[in-house]
Nucleic acid binder design. Structure first.
Lengths: 240, 240
DNA sequence: CGGAGTGTAGTA
DNA sequence: TACTACACTCCG
């Protein structure tokens, strides 16, 4: 029986956390976690822990298995629309076969050292560049040309095309629950050290001012476009 | 733990089917179905079942939850677009409050006796009449006027308006997977005894002839309307 | 360590 | 939104 003693990290002093790896049976390789209270009791589950600690301590954000408080629990619920999911690099060959994903296996020594900080997987910084050269087309194969950006929308990052910037903005609009405002640091700062200075939760554009007039002008344009769309739809329906 | 043992009905002999009702937690009230194989394994899902049975047995028509073979399975997979769902009669008052819908409860004795024959609910014969007087409107509250029908489309049924016929046709087009051809019996026969002579799977129109020329003319009209729609959409996008 | 019981990501 | 399929917990 392999045991690893860790500091209790966040629990009251005197508590110990222990992991035991199962070494045989169907569940071989799985680890069981338990806690040792100051008075020597062995706690084997979260309900048992809260029974012992009483109502005074709120364990709702406490992850029994990892022993850490998980504040990001709430941020996780993101609207999931398959058409909005960011592209994932595909391998060409053998892994098209089904692959079983194993979770919660004991982590390797190297990995274990990285365990601090947020649990969410790191985001690739300039993922937009993987989309380079891809284009949408309509059902008669005509390529739909990309949009132009207003002059006051400025990209921030190394060698980003207009297309990249658009991808960045649309991804931010669809995937983020917080306001989309652009990068706080200026262009030069970010270019010098993107890894440190870029805000991955924001699209790669500099922050910009939108006036009430800009908004009003846009509203008019939208109303006109809607009218035209509406008429075209009506004609479509009357023909069918 | 409430358990009901049923005969395996269609599965190889020696298999047992079990239902367990969840009695606590967020998913309280849900029933889990599983199967016990002759060798004592517990099967918890359809994929797991087919993994165990191997390729030799085709489970595509087998409904894991009910344990029965469903031959009408194919007819059932209907494109589900909320804008195409038939209207449901609404009560005016107290039930506007939220009401909890309970599914998958063990059926009452009375209901159980009805279990033979197709599970689909019966269709109301002239449901279109419930729509009388309702009208679509666009977002500036202009009423969108109904369409006209070509002269060779003839309604079949008591006091159906043009509007009713259109509703009938569009519902048939959206909800049926079989060809939409209209009523086989003639107008007089149907009017005499709708309950017997009408074909509920078809819209309430007489069968009619469409020539190749009709089709070609229509194709041209559609292509033109598509072009206009496409242009309006482009303009819409460029404004946004 | 097993497994009944429940949670929940992914998908239709 | 609802459900399937399976991961995971908790306690024997």
């Amino acid at each position: 029986m392999e045991k690893r003693r860790l500091e209790s990290g966040g629990l009251p002093p005197g508590w110990k956390r222990e992991e035991v790896v199962r070494k045989s049976g169907l569940s071989s390789g799985r680890t069981d976690v338990y806690y040792l209270s100051p008075d020597g009791r062995k706690i084997r589950s979260k309900p048992q822990l809260s029974r012992i600690l009483g109502d005074s301590i709120d364990l709702s954000a406490f992850d029994f298995r990892t022993g850490r408080i998980n504040h990001s629990q709430l941020r996780k619920r993101i609207r999931h629309d398959s058409s909005l999911v960011l592209p994932i690099r595909q391998t060409a060959s053998i892994f098209k076969q089904p692959v079983t994903v194993i979770r919660n296996r004991p982590e390797s020594k190297t990995k274990t050292d990285l365990k601090h900080g947020p649990q969410d997987p790191p985001r690739q910084l300039f993922w937009e560049k993987r989309l380079q050269g891809l284009q949408a087309c309509d059902n008669s194969d005509d390529i739909i040309k990309a949009l132009d950006l207003p002059r006051n929308v400025q990209g921030v990052g190394p060698e980003l095309t207009t297309e990249n910037i658009l991808q960045s903005i649309s991804a931010a609009l669809h995937l983020s629950n917080s306001p989309v405002v652009g990068q706080n640091n200026n262009r030069a700062t970010v270019s010098k050290n993107p890894g440190v200075n870029i805000d991955a939760t924001q699209p790669h554009i500099q922050q910009m001012i939108v006036s009430d007039d800009d908004i009003r002008r846009q509203e008019v344009k939208v109303m006109e476009a809607r009218k035209k769309l509406q008429e075209a739809m009506k004609e479509m329906v009357s023909v069918l």
